[in-house]
Nucleic acid binder design. Structure first.
Length: 294
DNA sequence: AAGAACTCCTGTTGGC
DNA sequence: TGCCAACAGGAGTTCT
């Protein structure tokens, strides 16, 4: 599943085709994804022009000239493919060969005035699309409780400490909680904790001082979260199995993983003699080094 | 009331 | 080769 860097990469891939374009025709091939599509979904989109394409947390937001916003979430396996007016191949062959690849689970197709065709494919259907009034977007149930943007100005040690103060949940769980910091997922939480030298099992509240102020650990964690996300965005995200860019190319940040997916491999932190372990926290794999992450 | 478990769905992978 | 369990980038709902 796409986390913030992957969603941002998709946004940048869709923007040239979508921004300023009119939705000439929309194909909705089933009545639901994770949730039912909203009433009159196709009618509310057809003929509308996309005025801007943004992102909030892991949501893509296409502003329409009707005043509504097309809200899109990729879930675990959601993918967009942009086909150009020239009809050139949109993805490398290997990408299309996998079962469940393009074709089988194509659920929505947008035909745009610029000649582009954008297809949404989602094997597991954990993704969804809906329409929300722009004026009330922030108060909408989907966004009301969404936490701070980690690449915005709000993420610093003091804010992290305030968000985590008094929490006994493991750091891993706190960082995955989209109500606190929005956009991190399993991969980037593991990577950030490794870089910060912090145990995923540590209680989140230990990053705040008694008075709620930030510890040095909180400052470090805030810094490395920003660092790892910026590096991942620059690399076009991470490609494991389902994710690819809108032109079919692949992200390459997976080659920079220091912890995620490296069970039993030696820790790469200079001077550390530890080995990466995999444990399960609230049903999800956590990769970390028990030696240098405390 | 926070935190953990369970749930949705399909596909891939690894062990026997 | 088949079969089956475990696992996968998310997150809302339901338990304790």
């Amino acid at each position: 599943m796409p986390e913030l860097p992957e969603v941002e990469t998709v946004r940048r891939g869709l923007e040239p085709a979508m921004a300023g374009a009119t939705l000439l025709r929309v194909e909705q091939r089933r009545k639901d994804l994770r949730f039912p599509f909203p009433d009159r979904f196709v009618e509310r989109l057809t003929g509308r022009t996309v005025t801007a394409l943004g992102r909030r947390a892991k949501y893509l937001l296409a502003d329409l000239d009707s005043g509504e916003v097309l809200v899109m979430h990729l879930g675990m396996t959601g993918r967009f493919t942009v086909e150009t007016p020239e009809g050139e191949a949109s993805a490398p062959g290997e990408f299309h060969h996998a079962a469940g690849g393009a074709g089988t689970h194509d659920h929505v197709v947008f035909h745009l005035s610029g000649g582009h065709r954008i297809t949404y494919n989602d094997a597991r259907r954990f993704g969804f699309m809906t329409l929300v009034e722009r004026a009330t977007l922030e108060e909408h149930a989907l966004f009301r409780h969404v936490g701070i943007e980690p690449l915005g100005n709000e993420l610093d040690g003091a804010t992290l400490a305030r968000l985590f103060a008094g929490r006994s949940a493991p750091l891993k769980a706190a960082l995955l909680d989209q109500r606190l910091v929005a956009g991190l997922g399993n991969i980037y939480v593991c990577e950030a904790l490794h870089r910060a030298g912090l145990s995923p099992n540590r209680a989140a509240g230990t990053l705040a001082k008694k008075d709620g102020g930030p510890t040095a650990r909180a400052e470090t964690l805030a810094r490395v979260i920003r660092e790892v996300l910026e590096e991942a965005v620059a690399a076009g995200g991470s490609t494991l199995r389902d994710y690819a860019h809108t032109d079919g190319s692949l992200g390459y940040f997976q080659h920079a993983f220091r912890a995620y997916g490296r069970e039993a491999e030696p820790c790469t932190k200079p001077g550390c003699r530890g080995v990466i372990r995999r444990i399960v926290q609230s049903g999800r794999s956590t990769f970390f080094c028990g030696e240098c992450q405390r």
